[in-house]
Design a binder for these strands. Structure first.
Lengths: 238, 238
DNA sequence: CGTCGTGTTGACTGCCATCAAAAGTAGTGG
DNA sequence: CCACTACTTTTGATGGCAGTCAACACGACG
């Protein structure tokens, strides 16, 4: 609708960090933003790179990835539309702590990191809201640690799917379908296991009618049963 | 030396978040602080409790613990003298995300959470420095996730000991002795394993002359060998 | 129709959790 | 000073969860 030179204010006016701002402020923020498209598979930023920009994902899905010295990959989180990313500057970092890769075609806005300070000082509520986001991500990370340290693979995979279904799925007549391509390998990288084990679990769950999965696709048909697996499962005699 | 009513300014003047402040400011901050002692084993604050205070550890060691629904405990981190803790307010939380327990006798200062905002606004550099701390803790958490997801128990335990030795040890003629009581169970809770496995590892390492351990005590005698175990260990034929 | 990425399954292995029992170490109070 | 208790540590025996390797099936896409 609007040209690249003049982004529509409604694009971001409802998104938490900007929600409390006046139209004028939003106008200013948008005028300072650069929009950019990324196609599926493209890297938006890379780990260890100087954090010269911070981003807002307007459309699409992004995977946040860390890689070990030995080449193993771990998926730290998924970013969905409306979330900020690459906000290393917020926490005094000068490089990105992880890589971000577009899962499907994405539309993002970005700003130079130098503007972060301005945003925080000038726009009331921006700081508070983004630090709340940071806080939530810390909680997520800590929960992840707790899971990895104390739970079995089955529970971890169940939880990962639950989170994805809640965070980013569309409802079909079959159930909740995770709305971006997701392979067994991806799931294994989210849960610290192998693609083989994930495949076996999904096969088993498919037989029990809990999920319905295919190539790069997972539909959760029975949330409740999946929740049972995710919690202190009383270990059904399956 | 100084009475409780008038804390010495040198107590905190060298600590990062306060380092850049004027003496007057430090005076103000100290006058608003309440000092308190905790004896070994006492809880300083508990998970889920409303975060009414934030703390500065002046002396002693503190363990930050999270507990699962099923009763498993995980040690998230250790706090050493000079660190802030319970800074949930910094990241928009209203409750503590974990419990803090005094490992040995501790001396802390605390302030009501309501002062956080004042500190951030009034004292230049305080915000920047503390957010840097937050950033470091996020990195730690993410590294921990990476380890749990990709490494074997042996490497994780080696890394945990390395970190402790670097972060909080005194040098003796035997080597680097971790300077607070630490049991096999504690180590297992840091690394997502069992006390039995930790015991076996330490026994093996003792035979190889890498560590020297006893009841609630660990001395690292060969940092380099431990580092080898912590990294991509090329799997010696031990 | 061939190729490549993805998914499935079986067979095997091994790391590490679990259980059990005994030995070592502080700290206590008689 | 010693016996007693509680906690911590060690070590062996056993079993199972899940990783690894290999082979094949399936589906998408040019």
């Amino acid at each position: 609708m609007s040209s690249l030179r003049s982004l529509d204010e409604n694009l971001i006016s409802h998104i938490p960090p900007f929600r409390k701002l006046e139209r004028v402020d939003i106008r200013e923020i948008l005028d300072a933003a650069t929009p950019k498209r990324f196609s599926a598979g493209q890297a938006i930023f890379e780990e260890h790179e100087p954090a010269e920009r911070f981003f807002l994902l307007l459309d699409g899905h992004v995977r946040v990835i860390r890689t070990t010295a030995s080449g193993d990959q771990v998926i730290a989180r998924h970013i969905v539309s409306g979330e900020l990313m690459g906000i290393a500057s917020a926490i005094g970092r000068t490089t990105y702590p992880a890589s971000a890769v577009a899962i499907d075609d994405c539309l993002v806005l970005f700003w130079p990191t130098s503007l972060w300070k301005t945003f925080v000082e000038k726009y009331d509520g921006f700081a508070t809201e983004t630090y709340k986001t940071v806080g939530e991500r810390i909680s997520e990370a800590n929960n992840h640690i707790l899971e990895l340290a104390t739970q079995q693979v089955e529970q971890r995979v169940a939880r990962a799917l639950l989170r994805l279904a809640i965070q980013s799925s569309r409802i079909t007549d079959e159930g909740m379908e995770i709305d971006f391509p997701l392979t067994r390998q991806n799931i294994s990288e989210m849960t610290g296991t192998t693609l083989y084990t994930v495949s076996r679990l999904l096969s088993a769950w498919e037989k029990q009618g809990i999920v319905n999965s295919g190539r790069k696709k997972v539909i959760v048909t029975e949330m409740n049963k999946l929740k049972t697996l995710a919690d202190l499962d009383p270990m059904a005699d399956s």
